[in-house]
């Protein structure tokens, strides 16, 4: 666990894996993964995505949750380009009650903290669909600069929409402590949701093949 002001980064497993079956099929996932084809993600596809990210040598999927342990969503760093020390950053809010809250913003800040302060990257790339104002506002608050617009780059509900590109450089990142102090993050007061029901689990002899 890496502890932040309003949220902590945790391994993407247990309750996160359970919630992800729902999250990966909802609007906020497709807004975060801008060029992914709109299609259902059955249980197998969700598991495969988690496994793929676990094996990924140039990226990772990380969960973020409130101080009470309420899972909010995930952050992804990916396509790490070793030579130029660059990564893509993606934030997705699974529990939509947290959309636009300082907890969600803190998820992004914690991702930036991790890639700049632990992984030593030089530059972070981020993208947003032109109409995704909440995400764009987050990028601005986190210190990103808008660097351009790929026109009609993404298919979206019968239309093609612009993709806004953002970048943040290591010498522009003031450090997690400084930026959270500047932004004066405040908890939203959202009640933690009840724990998800566990799927059927073998009570005895886990891992054994039946007779």
């Amino acid at each position: 666990m890496i502890e932040g002001k309003l949220v902590d980064l945790v391994p993407f497993e247990d309750d996160f894996a359970t919630y992800f079956e729902q999250w990966m099929n909802e609007e906020s996932w497709f807004r975060a993964r801008v060029w992914e084809r709109r299609e259902p993600h059955p249980e197998d596809a969700v598991k495969k995505f988690i496994e793929k990210m676990e094996k990924n040598e140039h990226g990772a999927l990380i969960g973020f949750q409130t101080k009470d342990g309420d899972p909010i969503g995930g952050v992804i760093w990916d396509h790490e380009w070793t030579r130029v020390r660059k990564v893509d950053a993606i934030l997705f809010v699974g529990d939509m009650r947290y959309e636009g809250t300082d907890e969600a913003l803190d998820g992004l800040l914690m991702l930036l903290r991790y890639v700049f302060e632990t992984r030593g990257v030089h530059r972070v790339d981020a993208a947003a669909l032109a109409f995704d104002e909440v995400r764009i506002e987050f990028y601005h608050r986190a210190g990103f600069s808008h660097e351009g617009t790929l026109r009609q780059h993404v298919r979206w509900d019968g239309d093609y929409v612009d993709l806004e590109l953002f970048g943040l450089l290591e010498d522009e990142w003031p450090g997690y402590e400084q930026i959270t102090a500047q932004l004066d993050l405040q908890p939203s007061g959202i009640e933690p949701k009840p724990k998800p029901e566990k799927k059927d689990e073998k009570k005895n002899g886990s891992g054994q093949q039946p007779g």
Binding site: K86, H122, E147, G148, T149, L150, L165, L169
Partner: peptide, 20 residues
Amino acid sequence: LEARERQATLVNGAWVDALT
């Protein structure tokens, strides 16, 4: 020209922009 990504690549010791 649609985007200028600052210091997106390293060329002979200098950070340079990538243009899309």
